[in-house]
Amino acid sequence: MATNTESTQHLEVPKKRKRKLPTEVSIFLVLIGIALLFEVLGWAIRGDSFLMNPRRLLIMILQVSIIGIIAIGVTQVIITGGIDLSSGSVLALTAMVTASFAQQSDYLRAVYPALTDLPWVLPLLAGLLVGALAGLVNGALIAFAMIPPFIATLGMMVSARGMARAYTDGQPVSMLTDQFTWIGSGANPVIIFLAVAVFFHIALKYTRYGKYTYAIGANPQAARVSGINVRRHLVLVYSIAGLLAGLAGVVAAARAGTGQAGMGMMYELDAIAAAVIGGTSLAGGVGRIAGTVIGAMILGVMLSGFTFLGVDAYYQDIIKGAIIVAAVVVDQYRQRKRNKTT
């Protein structure tokens, strides 16, 4: 039988791959809108410009970078239909470990007096390794022990924080080498953040790794039956999320010049918020890194803007919470419109 030309032609729609306006564009407009709002409020309340201040913008984007690096991993986890609550604690643990391998030799109370003045790669690798291991444990618990992601990463959140404290009995790890702190100096965190973002944006879009990640989130059973090794892939995704939390820990320690067990408190929630504001669906199967980057920027602009206007920190949190919920409401609305049912 010949192909059904009559019936397909009737629709008069070409079978071309048509590109729709990506959701990132609309989120980006929201970002611009918020920034302009602060600009207006700045002139109205403080008689000063919010945007025309390079120093403030640099500080803002530096703050965004560390959360942003975490959020890139968390986004991928959420796309698989999971969640990662451990990233803030893993950041703290890696900051401690990485700092302990980056101390100067003239510091008398170094954690490892024999291992001081090491080249910067070693503490970096140690940090990445710790992060990846934490992620690996998360992934293994979820994929093989069948523990729900919420519970597994909640456990990791609590114990990684504990390990960070136990590592030096709660003492900060300071006096780090110059070559190590260089990692966090100047605009380096921003460069690292954007490089990681571009890398994973491409990986999600153009590689098998990315396609499988979406498939597992969309329908894990169908993914398995399509021959995808779902368990192995989940372990990989959680390990990458851990690795990125580790990277964030290294950058944070290098920037602060110290490792402290209290670092990264609640960062996991900011990371999840950045992903959700950026259009990642907690139901799985939907999300993009570009959206998450913009989502993180929105959080950064808000933090910086409220501080600039002198809004009390408590109120900042209240407004932030409302914006996160609003983002989800908008997302739901968009989904419903896509399905167009009553």
């Binding site: 098998r208 396609k211 979406y214 059973q221 993914a223 039956v225 021959g227």
Partner: peptide
Amino acid sequence: ETGLFLGLSVIENMEMAVLRDGYT
């Protein structure tokens, strides 16, 4: 239940099983 990735596109649904055999 075990076939469709309902939220994904037609092409993503079609290519998913064959991706593993090369195509990279």
